[in-house]
Nucleic acid binder design. Structure first.
Lengths: 194, 194
DNA sequence: CGTCTATTTGAATGTACTCAAAAGCGGTGG
DNA sequence: CCACCGCTTTTGAGTACATTCAAATAGACG
């Protein structure tokens, strides 16, 4: 299955496209490979593209004044990754995006996505539904950050995202959970002892 | 300015509606008043409506096993409030929504909003843009919860939302920030001493 | 194989919480 | 209009969760 078939299958979950519409859509996409540790976006740059992940694993994060990084979210196959704020406003992004594995994405620029909305208005619905799912997931995460201890958040993460968890280092999981790698190590030791 | 004019002005920021489209939209809305402390949604109930806030202030929150509440977000005039998860899946909601002031909302049901998307497809765009803004704000909040201390989050909140802050008790602000009211009181004392 | 980064372990520290009690404030009814 | 009741805020003391610093070990990658 090539990358265009993959993204079309993903789109087909929410909207139906005829052959012409599929052609318009895929003609706007540009494939890009990102090697492990390479950046798709750096803090201070303008986010030029929305990125559909065909293969690999990306992370979106900030680095604070103490040099510590904080992972906002991971992206794997079949997810989209960008910084909407910068993409929409063309202001510098506060986030970094880089690859945790050799990855491949399909990119669409702001101009092309605006064209797509005009040419195939169904995509308004597609991205609306995608965004709805994102909002639901984000509110769940906010609630967890407010109401759960580090141990509870860790247990929830490994139960909810077992396939992603296996691809990540503990350092990255700790950064996502909002704790230090040292403390995660202590939690794991305690949990394995039971 | 009556409530229909208010919501139409809000919609007009992102899409243009002719008179007929305005009429279709407003005919789908039902006005409801919620007195202070009354519920719009309880945990375990299905969220039947999207709610546009015409007047007042609402909060969306959970209550954990220790009986402590955690405010996911506040809603004031010109914002929408619902639980998208429950609204879309018709599963029981994990959230409570109640009024912090006497409030008035315009409600639209799932069936009517689906009808609206068919009758006036422009609304796909409208809600897409609204959701984009929500995602941007939520990611900002997630980043703050990961990277900032309680004091920093408080200072950011009062600088970003001064008008909302004035309408809230410290207990509610503490719940939103993810700290105890006792600790917020200590922070405020410390900050006022400078 | 050597280097660099990730993980583990331990000790000391700090941030934020719990419990408890007092003070303040707001709404309600007499 | 005042008094009372309940809820919010303040204050203090003791505690717990999570961090920092440091050093040792393990693992990944060229």
């Amino acid at each position: 299955m090539d990358s265009h078939q993959l993204i079309l299958a993903s789109v087909a979950r929410y909207i139906e496209l005829d052959a012409r519409e599929q052609e318009i859509f895929t003609s706007l996409l540009v494939s890009k490979t990102i090697k492990k540790h390479e950046f798709l976006l750096r803090q201070g740059e303008v986010c030029k593209t929305e990125n559909f992940i065909v293969k690999g694993c990306l992370r979106k994060y900030t680095i604070d004044e103490n040099g510590q990084d904080h992972i906002i979210l991971f992206g794997v196959e079949d997810w989209w990754m960008s910084d909407l704020y910068s993409f929409l406003t063309q202001n510098p992004s506060p986030y970094f995006v880089d690859a945790l594995e050799d990855s491949e994405v399909l990119q669409i620029t702001r101009e092309k996505i605006d064209f797509l909305y005009e040419a195939v208005p169904k995509f308004e619905r597609f991205f609306r539904i995608l965004l709805q799912n994102t909002v639901i997931a984000h509110q769940r995460r906010i609630n967890q950050n407010l109401s759960m201890s580090a141990k509870e958040r860790y247990l929830d993460f490994i139960s909810q995202c077992p396939t992603i968890e296996q691809r990540l280092s503990q350092k990255q999981i700790a950064s996502y959970l909002g704790i230090t790698p040292v403390f995660l190590s202590m939690l794991r030791k305690e949990l394995s002892g039971k």
